[in-house]
């Protein structure tokens, strides 16, 4: 436990984090590719067509994992944002701020793929129902966080202001999640459950779960890449950054 504690402490130091993230990132990449290939083969080739939706349902294999990521990344941001506000840890600020564009990307993907799925199934690309509207609000919150962060000259001030916005925006997460329960909506309810049997056949379930792992790992790849540059940018006055920059792009 003590060894883990010192390791975790060390991880807060920018040069150590930079090196560690650079070492970890290729491995996350390998995992992302393996799980994505498995999920895509399982979803596009092996899973049978749906008895009601035909092949159109195959959008589920990117739509649902992306939707989960749009909420999951916000959760990560909320926790690291809170840590950044309370303990003023630089790395927590970086994790929160660099996660925002990735979360916005996944939210955007969720909305577009959902809309492309809605057209053949519901007959419309868009409808102002609870699930769709709250997910759109989530995208605007992400964009607001990114905008607020960049509106400040000083990164740390910007990060603190944006962290407050993150905390306020948490209120939207349960609304997105429970919208299909609380309101009558075109959107179907939850079919994949963790704590109860899922109402989906196994041949369709496992590719979704594989893609879920792939998108999680991709988030790691993207976040570590972004965080490493953010660390360099923020620490640009320090010797170790100077050394990395002059030594060339070795281990870039």
């Amino acid at each position: 436990m003590n060894a883990f504690k010192t390791w975790f402490h060390k991880l807060g130091s920018p040069p150590f984090f930079y090196e560690f993230a650079g070492y970890l990132r290729p491995w996350l990449w390998v995992g992302t590719v393996v799980f994505a290939i498995a999920g895509l083969i399982g979803g596009l080739l092996l899973a049978p067509p749906d008895y009601q939706q035909g092949d159109a349902y195959r959008i589920i294999f990117i739509h649902v994992p992306s939707a989960w990521m749009s909420l999951f990344i916000y959760g990560v941001m909320a926790i690291s944002g809170l840590v950044a506000l309370v303990w003023r840890i630089k790395l927590a600020e970086i994790i929160a701020m660099e996660s925002a564009p990735i979360g916005a990307a996944f939210t955007f993907i969720t909305l577009v793929t959902g809309s492309l799925w809605g057209k053949p199934m519901w007959g419309t690309y868009w409808t102002w129902d609870a699930r769709l509207t709250s997910e759109l609000v989530l995208l605007f919150i992400y964009l607001g966080i990114i905008g607020l962060y960049h509106a400040f000259e000083n990164e740390r001030q910007g990060a603190r202001a944006a962290a407050f916005l993150i905390i306020v925006g948490v209120v939207n997460l349960p609304i997105v999640h429970y919208s299909v329960v609380w309101w009558n909506t075109l959107h179907q309810g939850t079919t994949v459950r963790i704590f109860a049997p899922s109402s989906i056949s196994l041949s369709m379930l496992w590719p979704i779960l594989a893609m879920m792992i792939a998108t999680k790992l991709y988030y790691g790849v993207s976040l570590l890449g972004r965080a490493r540059i953010a660390v360099l940018e923020r620490e640009r006055g320090k010797d170790w950054v100077r050394q990395i920059v002059t030594e060339g792009t070795k281990n870039a």
């Binding site: 195959r58 959008i59 564009p101 990307a105 492309l116």
Partner: peptide, 23 residues
């Protein structure tokens, strides 16, 4: 895609293009 190619493939294209842009 059982006649749904115009919806399924653009959805996958958006997924990969957005993430590639991110990287």
């Amino acid at each position: 895609m059982g006649g749904f190619a115009a919806y399924v493939w653009p959805a996958y294209a958006v997924f990969f293009l957005v993430l590639a842009t991110d990287l």
